[in-house]
């Protein structure tokens, strides 16, 4: 339980800029890759893939922490539509570079980093507050209480 004397735990790590910009939002973390076309709904930013651990959850306005993209080449077009519909993530942190995720991040136009100096899946949990300064290559994590 948190008390007045407890300071929230803050962790910083570095990565390589994929798309510049700054954002601060709650994290949504999955260790499973995500499909764009056929894997998400562009209407509300939710994951629709049947056996995915995020099935039914939305990344809209969240810092999406995930290994990267899989599946159809419609990946970028679906994340592009999420931007146009206002259902895109606030920022993206991923570990596995592919053309799908690179192009997808570029057209989603949200701060995006990869190539981290630490394990993002170890350090970030869903619900943590994450500040992404992609121009500086900096991620600041404020752990959620509990």
């Amino acid at each position: 339980m948190s008390t007045a004397t407890d300071k929230p735990q803050v962790i910083t790590l570095r990565g390589r800029r994929v798309v510049g910009g700054k954002a601060r939002a709650e994290a949504l973390v999955t260790t499973q890759t995500i499909s764009g076309w056929g894997g998400i709904s562009e209407k509300d930013g939710s994951v629709i893939e049947l056996h995915h651990e995020l099935h039914g959850q939305s990344f809209a306005g969240k810092v999406l922490v995930f290994p990267g993209a899989k599946g159809s080449s419609g990946w970028s077009a679906y994340f592009h539509m999420c931007r146009l519909n206002g259902t895109a993530p606030a920022a993206m942190l991923f570990t596995r570079m592919t053309t799908k995720i690179a192009l997808g991040a570029v057209v989603t136009r949200v701060p995006t980093l990869t190539d981290f100096d630490a394990d993002i899946f170890e350090l970030i949990d869903t619900g943590d507050t994450v500040e992404v300064d992609a121009d500086a290559g900096l991620v600041t994590i404020t752990k959620a209480p509990g």
Partner: peptide, 8 residues
């Protein structure tokens, strides 16, 4: 070829 997208 890589997997390209609608924009590329």
């Amino acid at each position: 070829t890589n997997v390209e997208g609608k924009e590329s």
